[in-house]
């Protein structure tokens, strides 16, 4: 592995977002294959994930690594697009915290783990209105929509988004996954979601099963 790839991997393993960004930019300057850069980052985030599963790393490590990866990933993805190469992806995901809710930790964790698993993830942020989800699904050709809500008062907004998908004729095109502190399996079923899990690693399994890959 070239020095720049090794540094990129290490920066994520050491939760250093600034360094991850720096080496992502440097990898492009040095004309490193962006697919290899992505692979180095994925390897790092998987290593953190494994440590987390074994009880050797903790939540701040997982989120620290995810933050570093999310900082570097768009730079590498831009380069992949520019070169016209195709990254092998398990599927395209659009994720966001629903309107009225501005919590992001859980969503960020899920996005990072989905990304590490091999999904192409478009995190469209917090406080997202139903029509903004629709636009992002259209623009990115998403197969999975991830809706997050922490608060019991904002959870019903998920229902609104699903109703909006039906209205726009998109409901059959995307699988909807829901999660967050206020969400239960019963609630997910009630609002007609396709998938739910109370944990971020569990959400990855759900996503895989939804796309059958």
């Amino acid at each position: 592995m070239s020095e720049v790839l090794e540094e990129l991997r290490k920066s994520i393993l050491e939760y250093d977002a600034d360094r991850a960004e720096e080496y992502a930019l440097r990898s492009i300057e040095e004309k490193v294959d962006p697919l290899k850069s992505f692979e180095a980052m994925t390897k790092a985030i998987n290593e953190i994930g494994e440590g987390f599963k074994k009880g050797e790393r903790w939540l701040p490590d997982l989120v620290g690594g995810a933050d570093a990866m999310l900082r570097a990933a768009p730079i590498i993805e831009r380069e992949i697009k520019k070169r016209g190469v195709k990254r092998q992806s398990l599927g395209v995901v659009v994720a966001g915290t629903v309107f009225g809710d501005i919590h992001s930790i859980g969503k960020t964790m899920v996005c990072a783990l989905l990304s590490a698993e091999g999904f192409e993830v478009h995190d469209i942020g917090i406080n997202v209105r139903a029509d903004e989800y629709i636009r992002a699904i259209d623009e990115n050709g998403a197969e999975i929509l991830v809706l997050s809500a922490l608060m019991t008062t904002t959870a019903p907004e998920m229902h609104k988004v699903i109703a909006f998908l039906v209205e726009k004729g998109l409901r059959d095109r995307v699988k909807v996954m829901v999660g967050g502190g206020a969400i239960t399996e019963g609630f997910a079923k009630n609002i007609g979601a396709d998938g739910y899990d109370p944990t971020a690693p569990g959400a990855v399994k759900v996503a895989r099963s939804l796309v059958g890959r």
Binding site: G55, W58, L59, P60, I105, G106, M109, G181, T199, A200
Partner: peptide
């Protein structure tokens, strides 16, 4: 925060 599950 619970440092394993992320839940309060």
């Amino acid at each position: 925060i619970n440092m394993r599950t992320g839940s309060p």
